[in-house]
């Protein structure tokens, strides 16, 4: 059992094997996640009851909460991968970090924008000097920093080191975001889901939210795998397996064009 796990681990750390073996996981997560997300959003928009205080504006929750929790979880993953990379120098882990950072930045931006749009009817203002909002804005800055370092710092080894360090140091911000609603007096409402208590919402409101949160996480894994495959190819461009992949791509393109010129009737 343990040996099997070790073998699997080493196989997964080898990039050409990862490139082919991950495909079913990528498709499975993508299909399941997209369907769950669709169900959750439709359910939340069309069937969930309106909130007794906030009215229909609360339906923003079905996009705001998944985006915010995704932004925080991705940052924790980046920190974890940064640590693993600094200690063991596993290439795949750094590729994962590069693949996931743009999604983290996007979901952080979505959380902030939807939060502002929710704030207008609920608080009467899009932003407030609130601990939750400020720490979330700081998370977006950290994400932008990570993306800039990746894009601008040139020897790859230097960028990898810097990114890992920023991720590890910045992760201190995540518990501040998480517990800001409990530690400080904030405008922002408390957490919807906690591990220890039943949600304060009725099931007709929290079940769609659960669906969209789970769907978002599955979609994240699908995106991670597909994007990591691309980063693998781009990083290893001069390696033999990528050259073989290129030859294969050229051959299939040739086959497609020659077939098209032979029987144009198929296309028409």
């Amino acid at each position: 059992m343990w040996q099997g796990f070790v073998k699997w681990f080493y196989q997964m750390a080898s990039l050409p094997l990862f490139y082919t073996k991950i495909v079913p996981w990528m498709r499975g997560c993508g299909f399941a996640g997209a369907s769950l997300l669709c169900v959750g959003l439709m359910w939340g928009l069309l069937f969930a009851p309106a909130d007794y205080q906030q009215g229909d504006s609360f339906r923003i929750i079905y996009i705001h909460v998944p985006a915010a929790s995704l932004a925080m979880s991705i940052y924790v993953l980046l920190a974890l991968w940064g640590l693993i990379f600094l200690i063991w120098r596993i290439k795949l882990v750094d590729i994962f970090a590069q693949a996931l950072a743009p999604l983290g930045a996007t979901s952080c931006a979505i959380a902030l924008i939807t939060g502002a749009l929710w704030g207008v009817p609920t608080w009467g203002a899009p932003f407030a000097a609130d601990a939750r909002i400020l720490s979330m804005a700081f998370l977006l800055m950290l994400y932008i920093g990570l993306l800039l370092v990746r894009a601008q710092i040139k020897p790859l080894a230097k960028a990898q080191q810097l990114v890992s360090v920023i991720a590890i140091v910045g992760v201190l911000n995540v518990p501040i975001i998480k517990y800001s609603v409990e530690w400080f007096t904030t405008l922002h409402q408390g957490a919807t889901f906690t591990l220890t208590e039943k949600p304060k919402m009725p099931p007709s409101m929290y079940l769609p939210l659960l669906c969209s949160v789970l769907g978002t996480y599955l979609c994240m894994f699908s995106w991670l795998f597909s994007q990591a495959r691309r980063v693998c190819l781009m990083r290893e461009a001069d390696k033999r397996w990528v050259q073989a992949w290129l030859v294969q791509q050229l051959d299939s393109e040739h086959a497609a064009t020659s077939q098209a010129s032979q029987d144009p009737g198929v296309i028409q």
Binding site: A50, D56, I63
Partner: peptide, 11 residues
């Protein structure tokens, strides 16, 4: 959405 449509749909 009872007057909240613009916020919900724009988000």
């Amino acid at each position: 959405m009872n007057g909240h449509g613009i916020y919900v749909w724009s988000s």
